[in-house]
């Protein structure tokens, strides 16, 4: 367990010195500012684009539009940005041979996966929460209405989804020999889950519900209990995938 702690510190240092943390912070701060701002400006932009010839009736933007922007950003491009940054985490070390030395020093292989999982998930949470807080502040400033009563309720599923998606990214990275392989596997899983959502009956059980139903939760039109099965399945899958990665690295040639 001590080794895992030492390796976590190494991972944190790596993220800091290789500017991963900085990139994540910059991107997600921008997302946080952009969401509410876009919601605010969209009617004006449309007005300008359509010219002065005739006017379209646009409903005034509300906090719903602002949060919609936020969740759109987080669950689409946001997830891909994170996967791009994290997808080389295991494969990079294996292909460069940097683990050899540490493993021959007595670093257990499971520590590598555990530490990488923890540090990656922390960065996932940091990214999403930072963006969330900024978005919250601006939304409250631009749209002081009460149309989005359950602000926090939308965030939890996204964080829980991260538990599974980080595990998938790490598994992909352990399976493949380069960054692209890990990225590809994560993207395929995401698309696969989205396609699965086409079957109406599976919706309550599909982990993708955790990143598609956020707005209904925020607006209060859906209760969290509705997607509870999906939440449990997500947590269970995260554990299984995480354990698979440990098994895989144990057999992998360094």
């Amino acid at each position: 367990m001590k080794s895992t702690w030492f390796f976590i510190r190494k991972e944190l240092l790596e993220s800091w010195r290789n500017y991963h943390l900085l990139i994540i912070m910059i991107v997600f701060v921008i997302f946080g500012i952009e969401g509410p701002l876009m919601a605010k400006l969209t009617p004006d932009i449309l007005k300008m684009a359509s010219g002065s010839g005739f006017s379209i009736k646009m409903p005034d933007p509300t906090s719903i539009d602002s949060w919609q922007q936020y969740y759109k950003n987080m669950t689409q491009i946001g997830i891909y940005v994170l996967v791009v940054i994290f997808s080389g985490t295991v494969s990079g070390e294996v292909s460069q041979g940097t683990l050899v030395n540490l493993v021959t020093k007595g670093l257990p292989r499971y520590s590598v996966i555990v530490a990488k999982y923890i540090v990656t998930y922390l960065q996932w949470c940091l990214a999403i929460i930072t963006s969330f807080l900024i978005s919250w502040g601006y939304t409250a400033y631009y749209f002081p209405d009460n149309k989005t009563p359950n602000i926090w309720l939308g965030l939890w599923p996204l964080l829980i989804f991260g538990l599974m998606f980080v595990a998938i990214t790490i598994l992909g990275s352990t399976l493949s020999t380069n960054n692209y392989g890990g990225f590809l596997i994560s993207v395929i899983v995401f698309i696969g889950l989205t396609l699965l959502n086409l079957f109406k009956d599976s919706k309550r059980y599909n982990p993708i519900a955790l990143v598609t139903d956020n707005m209904s939760l925020v607006k209060g039109t859906e209760k969290i209990s509705h997607i509870m099965p999906a939440i449990w399945i997500t947590i269970f899958s995260a554990l299984v995938i995480f354990y698979l990665s440990i098994l895989l690295l144990r057999r992998k040639k360094l």
Partner: peptide, 19 residues
């Protein structure tokens, strides 16, 4: 890797964390 603790290893081209 537990036995490794009493072994030192010097590979032909050692790889490190450059940062």
């Amino acid at each position: 890797s537990l036995i490794n603790r009493m072994v030192g290893y010097l590979p032909d081209v050692p790889k490190y964390y450059g940062y």
